[in-house]
Every structure is written in structure tokens, then in C-alpha cells.
């Protein structure tokens, strides 16, 4: 298969220079649940060079309402191995590296050191904070979170943007089992993937900005953030 053939429709839009740049880049997908599956597939179909998939979970029946890379045949299996196999077969152009790790417990510094950026698709604040603390100053992290049919996306760059800990630190209780549906998962995952591409190409849109998506009334809005360092 010819790489130019596979990505011809993308190149027709964003050009060969951006396409070639993607092939040289590595992104770390933290959490391959609902949003992580969408982000990973879009980046792969965009032509990213390498993807790390980090998750220590197994596919459960409640995942099947929204987690795009899993089927009934995958129940009980590690998510990263299923997702890795499925993703590798899509274009054959991306190196996919599954990591059975728990963010916040296992050492991911080796994998992160080779990455341009991170997709924060985790499902709890402590893990998100741990991931944020693992970033080096030259990395970006696109962080997305959802609830019901509502979602928020922002890009974090250490020392340059408002941090997740500043935004979310101190919250007391977030229930483990939450209502979440597929439309916001696919919507938010798409927005996150686009912002990762934006960052790779040096055109970030959501640094010091939260993009809000509420599907109930098709509410899309941008909320500006002011970092503490720049009053």
C-alpha cells in the first residue's frame, strides 16, 4: 500500500508538509476507554507516526455503549491489547505500542520522553494530576473530560497555561459510575484529536482556553483562562 494513496484525501486538505510532520510524531494516549479510543483512531487515520496506548483496564459490558474499539468478543480482555490489534490493522502506517500500566502507579517516564504530546483521556482527577506532573516543559497535554452529554477540553503546557490542578484541585467527590453516552464521547474525542493535530503543527487553539460542548442544546463555547504568572 502506498502511503500517499492512504492519506490522499487528508493531503488534499492540509497538504504534504503537515502530513509528513505527523509521520514523525509520537503521542501518548493515557486511558484507552471511551474518549481514548476515538482520539487514538483519529490520530492513526490522520497518519501519526507512533502511538503509545496506556491503560490497565479490561473490557466490561458497560463499556460497549460508547467505547469504539471493543466488541462483545473482547469482554474480559486487556483493553490495550485489543485496541492495539485493531488500530494496527487500520492503515498499517502507525507504530502502535500498548502499555499495560496504571498512570500514577507505574513509571511512564521512559515512554513519555519520546513523545511530543499527551492525550489525557483518564477517568479520575488523581490520575490526571499524576499525568500532568509527568510532563516535561516542552510537552503539551490535551485534556478532555465528559459527563452525561457534556464535555470540556483544554490544552495544558507546563509553565505556560493554567494547570489541571489549579482548575480541578480540591474537589471532594466525583462518583466512579457516571452517566455517559456515545454522542459526547465521539464529539469530544474528535475535538481533542483536532487540538492534538493543532499542537503538533504549532497552531494550538485551546492553550489557556476551555472548549465546552453541551449536546443537549448544541452549546459550544470557549472560556478564556488566565495563568497566574501573567496577571
Amino acid at each position: 500500500m502506498n502511503r500517499r494513496d492512504i492519506f490522499s484525501r487528508s493531503i488534499a486538505f492540509w497538504g504534504e508538509e503537515k502530513q509528513d510532520l505527523l509521520a514523525k510524531k509520537t503521542i501518548f494516549i493515557a486511558g484507552v476507554g471511551a474518549v481514548g479510543c476515538v482520539v487514538a483512531e483519529i490520530l492513526l487515520r490522520a497518519g501519526i507516526g507512533r502511538l503509545y496506548l496506556a491503560d490497565r483496564g479490561f473490557t466490561d459490558p458497560p463499556d460497549l455503549n460508547r467505547q469504539a474499539l471493543y466488541t462483545v468478543n473482547d469482554l474480559g480482555k486487556p483493553k490495550v491489547s485489543t485496541a492495539g490489534q485493531r488500530l494496527k490493522s487500520m492503515t498499517g502506517q502507525t507504530e502502535v505500542i500498548p502499555l499495560e500500566v496504571n498512570i500514577g502507579e507505574d513509571d511512564i517516564s521512559g515512554a513519555l520522553s519520546g513523545c511530543e504530546g499527551v492525550a489525557d483521556c483518564l477517568d479520575n482527577f488523581p490520575s490526571r494530576f499524576a499525568l500532568e506532573e509527568s510532563l516535561t516543559k516542552d510537552m503539551f497535554m490535551v485534556s478532555g473530560a465528559i459527563l452525561r452529554d457534556y464535555g470540556q477540553v483544554t490544552t495544558v503546557v507546563p509553565g505556560r497555561t493554567v494547570s489541571l490542578r489549579e482548575l480541578y484541585g480540591g474537589f471532594k467527590h466525583v462518583p466512579k459510575t457516571v452517566p455517559v453516552i456515545a454522542p459526547i464521547v465521539f464529539c469530544l474525542g474528535s475535538l481533542m484529536a483536532q487540538e492534538i493535530l493543532n499542537n503538533i503543527w504549532g497552531e494550538p487553539q485551546l492553550q489557556n482556553t476551555i472548549l465546552v460542548a453541551g449536546l443537549a442544546g448544541f452549546c459550544f463555547d470557549l472560556v478564556p483562562l488566565t495563568p497566574t504568572e501573567n496577571p
Binding site: 481514548g36 477517568d123 455517559v180 472560556v223
Partner: peptide, 10 residues
């Protein structure tokens, strides 16, 4: 003054 819900699922 802007207020927002903290959300953390994904």
C-alpha cells in the same frame, strides 16, 4: 465570574 461543573469521566 464564570462557573463550570468539574467533569472527569472519559
Amino acid at each position: 465570574l464564570t462557573i463550570m461543573p468539574p467533569v472527569s469521566a472519559a
